[in-house]
Design a protein around this nucleic acid. Structure first.
Lengths: 337, 337
DNA sequence: CCGGGGCGTGTAAATGATTACATCGCGCAC
DNA sequence: GTGCGCGATGTAATCATTTACACGCCCCGG
């Protein structure tokens, strides 16, 4: 059942059928009705591949996600998919994991599939060294790319993100305002966004003339579900004599791990230790007490990503970088100032 | 840059180039090498749409997900995507939300896109009334469908699930073994799987001759992120005089809500109230105490879904229904027996 | 010496749309 | 009355592949 069958049954040419299907104005109402009736009666479904071949597009966006099971990225996925679909685009999901080579393969596969655009979810796609990003530069020649929580100076690569540095600085300042002096910084990523946050933390302490203790800079390299390992990590640290009255985490799940540590160590939250997370994900409300966390405006970021992508696809000029302002959401895991 | 350009440069016909690209055995090694070299030098990428048109497939599976931000479904998404990709298939993600019409539209859109197969994530796709499922029957004529956590008696619709009924029964029995007598059943879905679980709960109580109090059957119709609303719900219930010494939830997030209730009501977990969740999702380890929960073998289910789909696509005969055995994972939110 | 069977390769016909261009007919202005 | 323009429709080229079929060629057996 193809367009020829329909054209025969309706007594018109295939061009007319095509015009009806594409809502072209150059069809009389009578003809349109007749063709529509035949289409509905026959249960005809246009062949998407042929259409794609002719238009050189199948209205598809590639979503490259490091880990779809991460609550924060999962939320982003949901926002993006919904917004793209409302614009008539479908989303091809590729979970890449952590390795650079898997990411490159993912990007290349999507190029092969001729997606109309790609979203790289997470600044971890950007390597600190220039060479490692060549595949992104190559890909950008074929299709527009938008980065979630990142930026990359390259034509046809757009970035939408929050001012993580400032947000982290303000979070640390808030803790200091509440009387904390030894703030443990717990982070799990050394990528672009991770570096921005760390810089914000340093800036805050320097600004207040607080000594930066190296042992309070804790890098945790693990899976986000390894809550228990974070607890052990902090307990071990404490065993080594490190003392702290607050934990500032670069990710909510790490903060939940810190919460677990506090309970295991018999320290009250927020009386003995204040804890601040990052992302303001669903985890914040799940935990007890509820987590103070930096809301990095994921919804706004996702909406803007879609807006940017649509603009580019429609040939409009779009800002290469869009920055939102993150906001600290205060809950029970920190003392009031 | 298309296959003609390559054929000219390599001094062969397009058929030969195509054969090289598709690893056909009917090409001499010398020719293959020569063509490959030209392809690599020119950076040629075959046109996926033309290929799709010829093969009538673009190696794509449609994933219909009610909510990608739900931790359990997000995990499933990650498992499925990974497994399908390892088989050479890409995944088109469609988040449908709760409404039936959105689901029908999602399914129809994927049919339009000519996916090779579809996975419906969650038995909520199956209506209790026959008429509401017509669109699934229609879709199954075009493409194979596999259900996650569900079954549907229709040709080319396959189901992979756990024995939710038995699992729920055993969970309730475990609570009774631990001395609980008034077990509140908290559920959020009345779909196929929801009904199976509820039946299991009833079966357990009947089996032990425990009275079934209607006020202990609590349906919570809300968003999974509405933890606080579950708390209020239970507090209100208690205000009305309902008493219970255990909560059995049909979903982990509901169990977390029950945990919140217990803290708000000043009841200790598990000493005063035991709490059991369902799905054994990441939430179980995030909460305090850690949640006892039914592990419904999501990984195994997802792997089997992919296996079933691949089998069907390769023309093999596949079981219409595959059932795994769920298992209760005991943690701190319930008293030991 | 001739016929048959592979193997490697080329030719050309699908695949099923979109769309530029041609055509036709009709109404209106001059 | 004639010519122009426009709206509706058809014709045919185009998109970039896959693949059935044909064609040589070489080798081997009869």
């Amino acid at each position: 059942m193809n367009i020829y069958d329909i054209s025969k049954r309706a007594g018109v040419s295939i061009a007319t059928v095509s015009r009806v299907l594409n809502n072209s104005p150059h069809v009389s109402q009578a003809t349109r009705d007749r063709v529509m009736k035949v289409i509905e009666d026959s249960g005809y479904v246009p062949n998407a591949f042929a259409r794609g071949l002719g238009l050189n597009s199948m209205q598809t966006i590639g979503l490259l996600c490091p880990d779809a099971s991460d609550p924060y990225l999962a939320q982003a996925l949901a926002f993006l998919e919904r917004a793209f679909r409302s614009q008539g685009y479908d989303c091809l999901l590729t979970c890449t994991g952590k390795g650079t080579s898997a990411r490159r393969e993912g990007v290349e596969k999507l190029i092969t599939r001729h997606v109309d655009g790609m979203v790289l979810m997470g600044s971890s796609f950007i390597e600190s060294t220039g060479k490692g990003n060549d595949y992104i530069r190559q890909a950008a020649k074929q299709t527009p790319i938008v980065l979630l929580n990142g930026a990359f100076p390259c034509e046809r690569v757009y970035g939408v993100l929050c001012d993580d540095r400032r947000a982290t600085r303000e979070a640390a300042e808030f803790l200091m305002d509440a009387g904390c002096r030894r703030i443990l910084y717990l982070y799990d990523s050394k990528n672009e966004s991770g570096r921005r946050k760390l810089a914000g933390y340093r800036e805050a302490l320097e600004g207040r003339g607080v000594d930066m203790a190296e042992e309070l800079l804790v890098y945790f390299d693990g899976n986000k579900q390894d809550i228990a390992r974070v607890r052990e990590h902090l307990l071990a640290l404490e065993g080594e004599g490190a003392r702290f009255d607050a934990v500032l985490a670069s990710e909510d799940s790490l903060a939940v791990g810190a919460l677990k540590y506090a309970r295991a160590a018999g320290r009250r939250v927020p009386e003995d230790v204040s804890i601040v997370g990052y992302n303001n994900s669903a985890l914040c409300l799940y935990s007890e007490p509820e987590l103070t966390s930096v809301d990095n405006k994921l919804r706004a970021i996702c909406d803007r990503i879609v807006e940017t992508m649509m603009g580019v696809l429609e040939g409009r000029e779009m800002p290469q970088k869009t920055v939102f302002t993150a906001e600290l959401v205060k809950r029970g895991s920190t003392r009031p100032v």
